[in-house]
């Protein structure tokens, strides 16, 4: 596990574009290699649901394309449907250039509106951030 500190300039840039704050100034990430060649990165971040953090992990390839998304921990009574595999699969192949619009490109979930909006922006934040930090990753 590595820790990436997001500097304030980069933070402001991504936050302004996605319209969501970073939960913390640092991200955890893991490098995935095959025979000493890096093939992908896994990044873990949090977004705020109604009142508690939602911890999620995104697997991106070297081009910044999302390979998979997973909710690691959901902490509230309502809205846990964002953990659904079919729903999360909608982000697969998305990148920093994709349109992350709930109700258009991303289907909503009735009863989980806050979590859906928050997590969608959280995924977009990582996708937007990735090309900007890729060279700094180990």
């Amino acid at each position: 596990m590595h820790t990436l500190i997001i500097d304030s300039e980069l933070k402001a840039l991504v936050q302004n574009r996605v319209r969501q704050r970073f939960y913390r100034d640092e991200l955890y990430y893991w490098t995935i290699s095959n025979n000493d060649t890096t093939i992908a990165y896994a990044l873990m971040d949090n977004v705020l649901g109604k009142s508690m953090p939602i911890t999620f992990l995104i697997l991106v390839d070297l081009d910044g394309k999302i390979m998979s998304t997973k909710v690691i921990k959901y902490r509230e009574a309502y809205g846990g449907e964002v953990d659904n595999k079919n729903w999360l699969a909608q982000f697969t192949d998305f990148s920093d250039k994709s349109d992350y619009k709930v109700g258009k490109n991303i289907d909503g979930i009735s009863g989980a509106t806050i979590s859906v909006n928050s997590l969608t922006k959280g995924v977009q934040k990582i996708a937007v951030l990735f090309p900007l930090i890729k060279d700094k990753l180990k």
């Binding site: 596990m1 697997l59 390979m67």
Partner: peptide, 13 residues
């Protein structure tokens, strides 16, 4: 499968 291996292998998670 790759993803599961990744998640399982991340002890620090």
């Amino acid at each position: 499968t790759i993803f599961k291996i990744v998640v399982l292998s991340i002890f620090s998670l």
